Computed example of a mutant assay.
Amino acid sequence: MMRAALAMSLPTYDRIVDTSFLDRLSRSVDLAPGVLTEFTSPAALASLADVDVLVTGWGCPVLDAAAVAAAPRLRAVVHTAGSVRGHVTPAVWERGIVVSSVAAQNAVPVAEFTLAVVLLAGKDVLGATRGYRARRARPGAPDPLNPGNPGNSENPGNPRNLGNYGATVGILSASLVGRRLLELLRPFDLELLVHDPYVPDADLRALGAEPVGLLELAERSDVFSIHTPLLPDTRGLVDARVLAALRDGTTLVNTARGAVVDAAALEAELRTGRFTSVLDVTDPEPLPADSPLWDLPNVVLTPHLAGSQGNELRRLTAAAAAEVDRLAAGLPLHHPVPHPALSRTA
C-alpha cells in the first residue's frame, strides 16, 4: 500500500480535513498521522523519506529541490484546492512527479455565485433596492416601473432595459470558471460573448458564446464578468481604456483576482456612478479602511466569498480523495496539471 501524508497549514487542516476525508484516504493508502506544515525539521524529513503521495492544501510548504530530494519515493502531489503555483516548483516535474488539482471543483461555486449576480444585475437589484428604500420618505410617490402603482420598486433607468431577456453577458476568459459559467448561462435567454486570445474562436463558439475582442466585449456587455487568472500579462488587463468602454448602466463583476483590474482606473470610474460593480476580489485585498469603494452606492463588496466555503469544501476533498483512489488503483489522474499549463493558468 502506498504511503501518503497531508501537507498544508494548520488553519487549512482544521478547515477542510474531517473524519470522512481521513477515512476515505485510509481505505486507499497508508496515511501518516498528523500534518506536515514544513519540510525542514528532522520529523518532517523522516516523514518525507517514505512518502509516495502528498495530499496538499492551502499553505503547503514549497516543494523546492531540497524537499523533493528528501522524498525519493514521492510520485504524486494531489492538491485539495485550485492553483498549485504557491508550492509546486519545476523540481517536481523534473523528477517526473505527477500533479493533480481540484481547480475544476473549486470553479463550481465561483460560477454559481456569478450566475446569481448576473441574474440579479439584470433586474438592477442594487439600484432598485436603493430606490425602494428611499421612497420611505415619499409615501405615494409614483413608481417609475409602473406609474399607476406607487407600491412597487423604483429604478431610475428605462424600464425597457430592465430584465434578463436578451441581455448581453460578456465573459473575460474561458478559464475553468468562465467555461462553467457559460454552461450555467446557456439555458437563459441571454446573448453570451467571450474574450480569450488563447482559445481558438471555433472552440469558443462550441462553448455557446460569440468570440470578440476585449474592447468589443466591454462595449457590448450589460454584465462584464472577469474570470482571468492573474499572470504577468493579465495584471491590469482591464485598464482605463477598457473601463471607459463600458456602457452606462453596465455591471462589472470580478470573482477572479483584484489585480486583473487597474485599481486606480476602476476607482475613478466608479466615483462617476455611471456603472455598478460587484467585487468579490480587490487590489489590495482587503481594501484600506479609507477606500471610497466601501461607501460608494454603486459598489457591492464581498469578502472573497465566491470560492468554496463551508460545506462546499467537501466537494474539494472528495475530488482529491478520488484522485488518491485512482493512484492506488494504478489509474491515470482525472485532473492532472501539466507543467506547461502553468504559463496560462492560475
Rank of each mutant, 00 (worst) to 15 (best):
F224H: 01
G96T: 07
L270W: 00
L301Q: 05
V29T: 05
A341T: 09
L185Y: 06
S101R: 03
L252F: 03
A134Y: 10
E112I: 13
Y13T: 10
G170F: 02
Q309G: 15
S20G: 01
A341D: 10
P340G: 04
G140Q: 07
F188K: 05
G330F: 11
A107R: 11
G258C: 06
A268T: 07
P303M: 08
A289D: 15
L182R: 03
D52N: 09
D143L: 04
W294Q: 14
L301V: 07
R257L: 07
L126I: 05
N164V: 08
D222Q: 11
L182F: 04
T40H: 12
W58K: 14
L36S: 00
A7E: 03
S83M: 07
G157E: 11
T228R: 05
P286W: 01
L192C: 03
E94A: 14
G170P: 03
W93T: 06
L333R: 02
T168K: 01
N106R: 15
A141S: 14
V84R: 06
P200V: 00
G330E: 13
E269Q: 14
P211D: 03
A71W: 05
D222E: 12
S47H: 00
V238C: 12
A328K: 05
V51N: 04
P340E: 01
L327A: 08
R241W: 07
A70N: 06
V212E: 00
N149F: 11
D30S: 15
P187G: 12
A202S: 07
H334Q: 15
G148K: 05
T129W: 13
G122N: 13
L74M: 04
G170M: 00
P187V: 05
L230M: 03
V261M: 08
A70S: 09
A346P: 11
P147M: 03
L243P: 10
R160M: 06
Y13I: 05
V118I: 15
R135V: 01
N158M: 06
L215T: 12
D239I: 03
Q105P: 02
R344T: 14
T40A: 13
A318Y: 05
T12C: 14
A174S: 13
R274E: 12
D203P: 00
P197K: 02
A76C: 13
